[in-house]
Design a protein around this nucleic acid. Structure first.
Lengths: 367, 367
DNA sequence: TTGAAAGCGCTAACAG
DNA sequence: CTGTTAGCGCTTTCAA
């Protein structure tokens, strides 16, 4: 087979080949290609042009192997809590996309792993088999314990989620407690009093949003009613069923704080099918501000999570751990996007995405 | 540092260590761990227990390097057509999730790459640097030419998208032309005549759906009206603007065929904001059947793309190419899910996902 | 400025 | 059944 201008062919041409062709040693080729100042600039240019001519590209696998690094970051989506074994939430795609962008910019590869196994060692396995330099976990799922355990001696780990007291790893996430409180305060401000909470409290982030819900209620002198706590899991179907149950068990409510936009949409549908009008009868606030939130009917009032900076921060923190640092956890600022579903009352907007009223939190801290 | 029960610590323990500890040679350890029948079962057990004791796991990077394979499949999302540089469509997450599952089942790692570059070599680069055994491309974007060029000498490539005449690579995708036709026929069946088409025809899949749109119209003796072709790009914002433009330019229409559910939702919102009621004034059919389609108001009639089997087929085909085979392209059966947005007329359903009427296509062919 | 040689951690002939 | 040996393709001392 002719080796000239080889491309996309499993690259039979190696560094030795280039060396032979250029009449120099492997070492020199290696240096030249790495732009080492040690090599004569003419030799370098010669080598480079020969390499180009023959479509030679450094074999990254071999390079990384020699360097004892992988230049790869594993992004793990734990699904232990997710009965449907399915990432159904657009929020995660946004975040994943942002992580992918940042990682690419930093020259790292992204190894995507879905972990639905029950093995206690699920995380340790990813880490131990040396397929990556570090790990980004999207969500804590119900695995706080396991994660913390692993984090005790594996430091190259960053997690999207809630910052829990005493944890051994760095998290990046929104200010869930404040976010929850802002949502509920807004509903209270619109005169609502019986505010249902929809979410799976087994997840740390949701537990904090729940705490925010309770905070805001107590501020207003309202005792949180356990009957209004609905254990809606992520996933539209489960949330839909939970909402139906709430409606049918006769507990009165005039507002819903849904801990994700997907849950909010499922809830609204469950209500509208039963003749309950949003926002006239019931106000709804969601969480995430996924793209579709602005396009839903009614447009969703929601607590925005900024996936773009979230992903960037996750990567920054992870790269810091790779340098041996111990980055502080990041709590992203929280913002309430006010749209129709809470009864904003104004007439429809022309540009749903931009016209929403925003209420910023004071929190833009990095703790 | 004590090496006992080492875990999550960058694994300083190697196969040689285990060999020394067990008093055998590296080769024997290698064989034992691979369950080779060549090794005495007692020796094997001894070795395995020692390995376990010391938390030893085979270094996959070294293993793969030696075997000259990567056991990694790159999943590339080309974004050349996507001005927003953002995967905003939940459909892709579903597909990605399904691919991740299938790949995991087959023991392959998934390397995720977003390609937004303009370099003509974007695909060749992924392929040439030997970071993966094969490539799955999610969507053809506007890169048919480039893809086909690469595919001419790189065979380990499978693409989600449209099957184009004479192409050199294997595709998996839904029957876009039939899907488009089914959607439009259904609208015609409900008495609609002025059926707008929303989509970016630069994408091969969308071009086929457009052909289906025209097919169905002509069958009904209607000449496709160019004024009703709206170049809506993926992404809710762009689609929203396109729809506004259509409404405002005064072209009459009584139905919309949107080439994705996200586009459909944005379109519905644009209409409802302007006092146009769906489905009373205008019927809408979408494409994809993303989870949220059932939860939108009105629930969306849509052409389902089965991401679960789609992902599985993509992986099957790719593994076939890895074995040196040349798998045939796959066209998945198309199914119309009838819900409210086209004016189905029945009262609301209790279980939106399951209660929808289905119209199956005869096409389940594998060509 | 360049080359020779060693070796990353593993597997697979080959030879006992 | 087991050990010895020779690399995979690359980087990096060390010596010239």
């Amino acid at each position: 087979m002719n080796k000239t201008a080889q491309t996309c062919t499993g690259q039979a041409v190696t560094m030795s080949d280039v060396a032979r062709l250029a009449g120099v040693s492997k070492s020199t080729v290696s240096r030249a290609l790495a732009d080492s100042p040690l090599v004569n600039s003419q030799t370098r240019e010669l080598i480079k042009s020969i390499a180009r001519q023959h479509g030679y590209k450094v074999n990254l696998k071999a390079r990384n192997f020699r360097l004892r690094q992988t230049h790869t970051i594993a992004v793990v989506i734990p699904l232990a809590h997710e009965a449907e074994q399915h990432i159904s939430d657009p929020f995660f795609l946004d975040l994943l996309g942002s992580i992918a962008d940042s990682l690419t910019d930093s020259g790292y590869d992204l190894l995507l792993t879905k972990e639905a196994t029950d093995r206690a060692s699920w995380l340790a396995d990813v880490v131990d088999t040396q397929r990556c330099d570090g790990v980004i976990l999207i969500g804590q799922s119900s695995q706080q314990e396991t994660i913390d355990q692993v984090a005790k001696d594996f430091r190259k780990l960053v997690v999207w989620g809630a910052q829990l007291p005493g944890q051994h790893y760095c998290t990046v996430g929104s200010d869930n407690r404040l976010g929850g409180a802002m949502a509920v305060r807004h509903l209270l401000g619109r005169g609502r009093r019986r505010i249902a909470f929809l979410g799976n409290k087994a997840l740390p982030e949701i537990a904090l949003r729940h705490a925010g819900w309770a905070d805001a209620l107590r501020e207003a002198g309202i005792r949180p009613d356990p009957l209004l706590e609905v254990p809606a899991h992520f996933g539209a179907n489960a949330a839909y069923r939970s909402m139906v149950a709430l409606i049918e068990n006769g507990t009165g409510f005039d507002a819903v704080f849904a801990t994700s936009d997907v849950i909010a949409m499922a809830a609204i549908r469950a209500m509208s099918e039963r003749g309950i009008t949003v926002p006239d009868d019931v106000s709804v606030v969601g969480y995430d501000d996924i793209t579709m939130a602005a396009y839903y009917t009614p447009a969703l009032t929601t607590v925005r999570q900024d996936t773009a900076t979230g992903g960037r921060r996750l990567v920054e923190c992870l790269l810091a751990t790779l340098r041996g640092e111990t980055p502080a956890s990041v709590i992203l600022p929280t913002e309430l996007i006010v749209r129709r579903s809470c009864g904003a009352g104004e007439s429809y907007q022309n540009q749903p995405t931009t016209s929403a009223a925003r209420i910023n939190s004071p929190s833009d801290c990095q703790r």
